[in-house]
């Protein structure tokens, strides 16, 4: 989706038309027609801003250079100086800065559709594992119960990782929502301070639409996470029931501390034990020798010492020789 946001002119005198011709840049899907000019020409050395107008101009310059954090700091300082003449324009540009910050965050975040699909896939895999456990419980065959137990654990691991991914995505989306909410407030404030600023009102509407879309995505992820959590709980209960039915000597290692998947088997699978099949792809068989070579390749150097200088003490360089 492409929408146009207009950046307000910061120039207090002329040059608007010229600036509008040259300063036209794009931030993600948004075209920013920047008609921003400053009081100083680019060739002059940048002096430290002092007045609210200076801070405003510096902030607008940083916005043009896409240095968003600095732009935000400058514009906020300009606002905090409480100059009624500068405030509406500073607030307007601050809205742009915050929208761009949110967009940047969103770009780096995992796609909500991918994360949701991952969670749904983990849930369906969990449902299959659940079904297998129930069948094994009914058959009361030890082998099938152990197999179902291992599959269940694998499914729970998938659910855990899917939930972690959703949680991470939700955190980022929450940050984006915060930025865009603040951006909405900025545009609305700019329109409130300057009733003639129709661009601010238009931008607020656009941001509103984006926020609505973002909230929809967040809700979808939350629903997927709830479904995954529910499946994880059901699976946990079934696994616990199954543990009670499997004799201790046939129990897979790590089963008594079945709380979390990673701590269950710190030394990996024991001989004779088998991990449940992965959700997709095939397991690669590997010999113990190959495994040993791989592990040696990753050995840490904690026990290696740095070489000493040798038996003889080193001689210092001649201090009287010429320096170059």
């Amino acid at each position: 989706m492409s929408a146009k946001l207009k950046v307000k002119n910061s120039k207090w005198t002329g040059r608007i038309a010229l600036a509008a011709l040259f300063l036209n840049f794009t931030l993600l899907t948004f075209n920013l027609d920047a008609e921003v000019a400053t009081n100083s020409t680019p060739t002059q050395p940048e002096r430290a801003p002092e007045t609210p107008r200076d801070f405003y101009n510096a902030g607008t310059r940083k916005l043009q250079e896409n240095k968003l954090r600095e732009a935000e700091a400058y514009l906020e300082t300009s606002l905090a100086r409480q100059d009624g003449a500068v405030q509406p324009a500073a607030l307007y540009n601050l809205g742009h800065v915050r929208f761009a910050q949110g967009s940047e965050l969103l770009e780096k975040a995992p796609q909500s559709s991918r994360v949701t699909a991952g969670a749904q896939s983990a849930v369906s895999y969990g449902a299959a594992a659940l079904q297998e456990i129930e069948t094994a419980q009914q058959s009361r065959q030890l082998d099938s119960m152990v197999r179902a137990y291992l599959h269940g654990r694998g499914a729970r691991k998938d659910l855990n990782s899917a939930m972690k991914a959703i949680r991470r995505a939700l955190e980022t989306y929450g940050e984006v929502l915060g930025k865009w909410n603040r951006c909405l407030g900025d545009f609305q404030g700019a329109a409130e301070l300057n009733l003639a600023n129709h661009k601010a009102r238009g931008n607020a509407d656009i941001v509103c639409r984006h926020i609505a879309k973002l909230i929809d995505q967040i809700r979808m992820m939350q629903q997927a996470m709830m479904a995954a959590a529910q499946m994880q709980q059901e699976l946990g209960e079934k696994l616990q029931q199954l543990r009670g039915q499997i004799p201790d000597d046939a129990m897979p290692p790590g089963a008594p501390g079945d709380g979390e998947e990673e701590d269950e088997m710190p030394n990996g699978l024991q001989p004779g034990m088998q991990e449940g099949p992965s959700k997709q792809g095939e397991e690669q068989s590997i010999s113990p020798e190959e495994a040993g070579q791989i592990l040696n390749g990753f050995r840490l150097d904690g026990d290696r010492r740095l070489p000493m200088g040798g038996d003889q003490p080193g001689k210092p360089d001649d201090p009287n020789r010429k320096t170059w």
Partner: peptide, 9 residues
């Protein structure tokens, strides 16, 4: 508030 507006920071 930072500004005299309803949705101010």
């Amino acid at each position: 508030r930072l500004t005299p507006t309803r949705s101010a920071q």
